[in-house]
Design a binder for these strands. Sequence first.
RNA 1: GCCUGAGUGGCGGAAUUGGUUUACGCGCACGACUCAAAAUCGUGUGGAGAAAUCCAUGUGGGUUCGACUCCCACCUCAGGCACCA
Length: 806
Amino acid sequence: MRKYNHKKIEEKWQKKWEDDHVVKIDKDDTKKKFYMLDMFPYPSGEGLHMGHTESYTASDVFTRFKTMQGFNVLHPQGFDAFGLPAENYAIKTGIDPKTSTAQNISNFIVQMKSLGLRYDFDEKVVTYEPEYYKWTQWLFGKFFDNNLVYKKTSKINWCESCQTGIANEQVIGGECERCGTQIVQKEIPGWFFKITDFADALINDLDTVDWPEHTKKNQRNWIGKSEGALIKFSISNFQFSKEKTEEKQIKVFTTRPDTLFGATYMVLAPEHPLVQDLVIGLPNKVEVEKYILDSRKKTEMDRIEGKEKTGVKLEGIFAINPAIARSEGFRANSEEIPIFIADYVLSGYGTGAIMAVPAHDERDFEFATKFGVEIKEVISGGIIKERAYSGDGILVNSGQFDGMDSEEAKKKITEFVGGELTTNYRLRDWSMSRQRYWGCPIPIVYSPEGEAKCIPEEHLPWLLPTDVDFVPSGKSPLEKSVEFRERTEKIFGEGWTPEFDTMDTFVDSSWYFLRYPDVHNEKEFCSEKRKEWLPVDLYIGGAEHTYMHLLFSRFFVKAMNKIGLLDFNEPFLKLRHQGMVLDGEGKKMSKSKGNVTNPDEMVERFGADSTRTYMLFAAPLEDEVMWNEDNIVGVYRFLEKVFYQVDKLEKESSKEVQNSLHKTIRKVGNDIDELKYNTAVSEMMKFMNVVKNYQISQEDFEKFLKILAPFAPHIAEEIWESLGNKSSIHLEKWPEYDVKLAKDDTYVIAVQVNGKVRAEIEIGDGASEEDVKEMVFSDLQIKKWIGEHEVKKSIYIKNKIFNIVV
RNA sequence: GCCUGAGUGGCGGAAUUGGUUUACGCGCACGACUCAAAAUCGUGUGGAGAAAUCCAUGUGGGUUCGACUCCCACCUCAGGCACCA
């Protein structure tokens, strides 16, 4: 008897498939198309991790299944190859990011192949290759021409020493992760995509795609559409500023104009432009300025997490509550309310200023309690002493609006004070400039007068210069390139300078899926003919990309549609997430914890087939998987049983095996379609448990091998060959199941009395309700349970349950 | 603080979407094979109880002939975040 040597088998077939070009597809074939897409990985130095392994296996199984069903399946892979880690690595080691990244990519490819993932790497997309980023730049140009990109300054976390903006994630205890310098908030100029232009479409079109409901919900919340009003508050006693004596106003956005009479103070964000004016001559000027300075050191996350509300009052000046000012019957000067500066108000949302209604907003309530500001109830519903009432209700203490309901009052009060009803979005425009080296150069040059000009197509790709020094030295890396400056002057003339920022890597990944159908096209990002592959039919990837990548990609497609480059509105028709892969104790795998499992090691020990199959068996795709190495042996044993079954084939299959086989074919097909791989695998295990006890023919066994093949492609191929088949099992058609054979002759049904199971009886297929009833009522157990009671009612669910109510 | 999920045996999980809770796998126990061990194969395996039976899907209510599934309130855990006014 031959032994199941997974290593030998897998190496043999991986080589053979490649030599025979089994991985190649004809992109111009006229068969029905199916575009299956994975989120392409960032090629990190650590190699493929278990999360990749799970989602890529899931899509590989789906691809193989769809192919067997007769579809022409495009299932490409590529690399999101620009990014910070490579640059940080370069700073540390002096190794050029391109060299290290290319190295990582080849390692990833080896790993993917060893898992038996069927990708055609001649058709890959690599975002740092000029052949690719030429089109990233070209698209930027199109967006520029169509007014979808603009330049402005914005406040970001800034490291003075690295001369770069950094993400919250890279701020460790207020300091730069790289160099330990204190991070400050700084206004710097940068390029923005007008994603907010599409806010409504980004919400509405979610109704047209098959995505997990929670993902849609999250995106809607992220975009955060809210209806409200813009209301102006005047400032009184504003005599401190000598020159600017004209009337000052503070504009606020509120979703609750109905609570205007309850606004007992105002808050400005520390960055609010008016603050600079107001602070002049203030009695507590020093205190206020110190507060503003302190808040500049806080990252946005610090401001979110700050448990205790902080703030400072602008002594001696007041805002006028316009509603009270215009109403009769309020006590003198009650329209004057204090103004605070507090960092719980963000400059980026609304107008950067709020009217605070402590009686009806939790955060305002907390602040007012701490600073001793008046809390005035204007919506009945009752303030409970410890918290605000933030629901709608009937107005009180609101002059002539008393008795009105919130809904109506929102409009009426806004009108009354001359405000303006508007819609506000939480979503901000997409800041895409990065002061980094290892990214796609922004194809912009500046005239000697400082005017921005987009680089014409003939000069694309606008190459990333190579004569740079990565070590931070108070200058952004691209500024150090002599070639870059010379190139610019040579083409555009003396005094012209290039844009030194590169693009956010999310730009690269916002359109990569549009390139796969036509990766070698030098004339267009994708030909009209190849666009027939688009949009993506099924996209599998982590839920962590809900807000950025998935939203940005949707924006790109909508913008390109508007420009006329695409004729569809949504990039991904169907989306599913894979869960996180945790260690055996349910903890997140991380390098620092030292609990990272490497797929290579699993492949070495148990083989790709077992690793793949177990990965999918361990938990539903969308759930977290606890990677418990003790459990993989179950799958290994199962595959071994299949392997050794070859020696036990008979002329005919028994009835039991036939019945089980056809049920299994049906169930596995349905499960793959719904990406319920865990139950598909268990169904195949059940089948082998039946085979163990009954006889199976070669013909039936081969059918089983075909449904196993997408999961465990190597062992299936090996057995298939050993049975005398000459061509690959992966070119076979998916087997059909026979409805008659899949049907059961008898069913065991539960008999309940008052909903509790008291007996089981076996009935023949097709037994009528009358037959069943007769059997039930003649059952001794049941008779006992009914006893002297009167039978009030009985319920029969066909082939499942008979319930007697007494 | 806000948003989104998830709580079922010793463990990973299943449950035809309102119809027999614990499929499949791991582990464990016993048995067979073996000088022995490993591997393999059988049998058993939610808890309590001698049994009849009772109790079990995070907790407490509710709807229903019947609830892991639907509704309300709460608890715990995980993930995400840009305090969204």
